[in-house]
Design a protein around this nucleic acid. Structure first.
Lengths: 228, 228
DNA sequence: GTCTATAGTCCGATAGAC
DNA sequence: GTCTATCGGACTATAGAC
């Protein structure tokens, strides 16, 4: 068994002391800081305190290492999103959900992962943000595998809430929303630092609430008496 | 005279046949496609039909080449933005500008550069989008040099239009807007291709108008009777 | 100002001992 | 499963002829 990045290995060795997990955690930060071409397996393994050859032993290649990181982070986050949406729908008596509730279901699992300055999740959001600017081939395989279903479910939920919004308008506005989210993902640490100590200072949870309100208003642009 | 990337060389040799300009134009696309670490001076010079050593002769280094590209594109774009804002203010009898007018002044110079599938500007927008995810050191020097004044002028214009929005709220919403813009910058070609031939198909100018309306609505979130 | 040739460094991947 | 040692190739940058 040479390559071990198969499905059976998801979440089976999250003990932070294993070689495999040490690599995953350091790689996350290195990718967020430098991107795929900018990160070096030598620097990574050196900092993680593991041997250079361990990456190829455990993951097969640099690229497969990155795929593994994304899968192991994205799958539970999207599961959480769908579960929040499902619960909200279960409590709505079959009525369309308020736009705010839909966006909260999408944003809260993301915000939760950006809260607190410790923990391995802290670099994941910058990673996702960075990945959208990288080589389309690299990202699009991951997108097709892990994101498409979730995005489509949310798209349908919004459509039920705002049926007067054409399919194309909805797609465009969803696109803008993704951009605004990613801007926050990539820059949230830097942004919070800039606001630190200033009178209107706010934490990451407040920022995500601001984002939710901003996006909901954007979705309702040009429409009257709609969206709740 | 070894390094030639000084101010005197801005816009003096835009003749597409010179070695210096051929390098600039190809580098733009390569950076947009692969990022700083992913692009190679060998591949670039080979495709541009110039010698490998020409990059260091004309620009000094790979990094200085990138700085030159940004400066030579960003400076006229931001000048155009400020000019549009200035003209609008001159026609407003001293009254605050409508939010839509302010955003148009910011977005139209960008949209104009994304219109048409030919021309050297076509890759610039993807470049700007990509740069925000790159090494902060690299980007922040450029941001401080070339963007800060423009952003501050627009921030003040928005403040005059929406004085009830706190400084911090304005900063946060401006931040979200930048993210949404960049999302469109990075993905606009791919996005237009996806919508091609579908009933609600639209061109890049329409997309930027959609973006303007989306952002204006987002800025007005939670406020009543405001923003014009 | 353009070229060839190459210095010097770093890279991802792997063979093979243990 | 972890290690050393190294292969083969890519990179940026530059020296020096023309």
């Amino acid at each position: 068994m040479y390559k071990t990045n198969d499905l059976n290995h998801r979440f089976v060795d999250m003990d932070a002391s294993t070689t495999r997990t040490r690599i995953l955690h350091v790689a996350e930060r290195h990718y967020a800081d430098r991107g795929f071409d900018g990160m070096s397996m030598r620097a990574l393994t050196s900092e993680a305190g593991v041997n250079l050859a361990a990456v190829n032993y455990h993951f097969g290649s640099k690229k497969e290492l990155l795929y593994s990181i994304f899968r192991e982070r994205i799958v539970p986050m999207n599961a959480e999103r769908l579960e929040l949406l499902r619960k909200a729908a279960a409590n709505s008596d079959g009525k369309p959900l308020a736009l705010e509730v839909i966006f909260d279901a999408f944003l809260i699992p993301m915000a939760r992962r950006a809260t607190g300055s410790e923990g391995p999740d802290i670099h994941f959001l910058r990673m996702v943000g960075r990945s959208l600017a990288e080589e389309p081939d690299f990202w699009q395989r991951l997108y097709a595998e892990e994101f498409k279903g979730t995005v489509e479910t949310f798209r349908q939920a919004i459509h039920r809430t705002m049926p007067e919004l054409s399919e194309e308008e909805l797609a465009v506005r969803f696109h803008f929303s993704i951009g605004a989210m990613l801007g926050l993902l990539v820059k949230h640490q830097q942004f919070l630092k800039e606001m630190e100590g200033r009178p209107g200072n706010r934490d990451i949870a407040a920022l995500f609430q601001n984002l939710r309100d901003f996006l909901c208003a954007g979705f309702r642009a040009g429409l009257t008496n709609s969206g709740d």
